[in-house]
Design a protein around this nucleic acid. Structure first.
Length: 423
RNA sequence: GGAGGAAUGGCAGAGUGGUCGAAUGCGGCAGUCUUGAAAACUGUUGAGGGUCACACCUCCGGGGGUUCGAAUCCCUCUUCCUCCGCCA
């Protein structure tokens, strides 16, 4: 969440930045400011009452020690009113604090200055494009047809055992998937990201830490008997490793990578756009996460973008990079670059990575701080990106690498698959 | 699943009702010594709220209670450890 102090000191600047998201944040900011004032006023009054109570208790203690029991007992009679006052003020304080926190949760992150204003995907800005789009024959098939033709992904089988959006990968399809995971992890660790294996279920506190809760509760699968959620991305468990941490400046940077399955309810959309691998309820993803000093975070973001570029370059997939506009950017991000692979048979771009800087937005919820050179505690910056999300990369490979003989395997993956053709 | 024990500052670890926000050690920071570094020695060092700055307030796993007063007593939840049982 945004820092209260920043809202207090720079209200107009924050409202202006938020307007890029195509929302009018002024009413929310006003509410926060009002609750903040109320909270502090109550706190001041409560503090005064507590100070009086503490002084009185101390005095009673000393009187008992010196044997002046009578006087002590007399003072005790004065405490009743104080207790009552502190109780009611304490209740008001916790109510106000909770309301303030809830109001803060409703305000999204302020977009970085480079983020274009806009309401949806049509306002995103293409900043980079690379790779050749292959020319396919007239008989070129979309990936779901190819999957069926070569019997490597079975969507109906997934429907049978679970439901729509839970495909079963078979034979060379399964092997190719595993190859991609290994390849991505190897490339990421080679670039300095430490490999982690993390839980696929997280508790409520973790959901709040990275911002999935409270606003996106409906997008996560939730367990019935335990207060746990299936992770929608490795970002949640990995970033929450650093919840309630006070770092030293020398600990920067922290760089991690993790492969996990991701679970998303994604209710709503139907039709060709969600066909095949385009949108799933369960999919595999290799994620990279960084925790950075505020002064380094944008440099780190560029580094992550460059790294993801090399992956796509090596896979020889045509892709482009978009700088998301305010309206299309996630709730918690300050700046996001989306990577899209061109799916030749479908003739459309598919998002395969999203690389974001959250600045202090997550860190504030996480209480992820570090001690700066003046020994003051400051919030760190968190970043993450997909490197990469598997299903659409797979879709891109299947469609772009299809030939009359079968589907070729990108050269860099052959050592991982052990075969160079799916036929 | 049964029986016990424990949770304290960045870390380790004392503290069983009244100047305890908390000894001590490590770590961090500053200094002395040194050409420099290490070692040694000296000093300093929890977080949050609040204030121009003080004052003041909160925090000893979470929540609740007893008391004029709780790190310390009671209840409850969570987590960890030891022993027994079961099991991949």
């Amino acid at each position: 969440m945004l820092q209260l102090q920043a809202i207090r000191e720079n209200t107009p600047a924050i409202a202006k930045a938020l307007s890029k998201r195509n929302i009018d944040a002024q009413p929310l900011l006003d509410k926060v400011l009002q609750l903040d004032e109320e909270r502090r006023a109550t706190q001041t009054r409560l503090d005064a009452v507590l100070a009086e109570s503490n002084a009185l208790s101390k005095e009673i203690g000393m009187l008992y020690k010196s044997g002046e029991t009578e006087e002590a007992n007399r003072l005790k009679t004065q405490t009743a009113q104080i207790k009552e006052d502190s109780k009611t003020l304490g209740e008001t304080l916790s109510d106000t604090s909770r309301a303030l926190e809830e109001a803060l949760y409703l305000i999204p992150n302020t977009p970085h200055e480079s983020v274009p204003k806009g309401s949806g995907s049509e306002d995103n800005e293409e900043v980079f494009r690379e790779g050749e789009i292959p020319v396919l024959g007239k008989d070129a098939l979309p990936h779901w047809e190819l999957a069926k033709k070569y019997d490597i992904i079975d969507f109906e089988l997934g429907v049978k055992i679970t439901g729509a959006g839970f495909p079963v990968y078979k034979g060379k399809g399964a092997r190719l998937q595993r190859a991609l995971i290994s390849y991505f992890l190897d490339r990421n660790t080679g670039a300095g990201y430490q490999e982690l294996q993390v839980p696929h279920l997280v508790n409520e506190a973790s959901g709040y830490g990275t911002g999935q809760l409270p606003d996106k509760e409906g997008q996560m699968y939730q367990l019935k008997e335990d207060a746990l959620y299936l992770i929608p991305t490795a970002e949640v468990p990995v970033t929450n490793l650093f919840r309630d941490i006070l770092m030293e400046k020398k600990d920067f940077p922290l760089r991690y990578t993790a492969y996990t399955p991701c679970f998303r309810r994604e209710a709503g959309s139907y039709g060709a756009h969600v066909r095949g691998l385009n949108r799933l309820h369960q999919f595999d993803k290799v994620e990279i996460v960084r925790v950075e000093h505020p002064q380094q975070s944008y440099q780190a973001l560029e580094g992550m973008v460059e790294h993801v570029k090399t992956l796509l370059r090596e896979l020889k997939l045509p892709y482009r990079i978009l700088r998301l506009c305010g309206g299309d950017m996630g709730f918690t991000a300050a700046l996001t670059y989306d990577f899209e692979v061109y799916s030749t048979a479908q003739e459309r771009w598919l998002e395969i990575s999203s690389v974001s800087n959250f600045e202090t937005y997550q860190a504030n919820r996480l209480k992820l701080r570090f001690r700066d050179e003046h020994k003051k505690t400051q919030l760190a910056h968190t970043l993450n990106g997909s490197a990469l999300a598997l299903p659409r990369v797979l879709a891109g490979i299947l469609e772009n690498y299809q030939t009359s003989k079968g589907i070729l395997i990108p050269e860099v993956l052959v050592p991982y698959t052990g075969f160079d053709l799916i036929d």
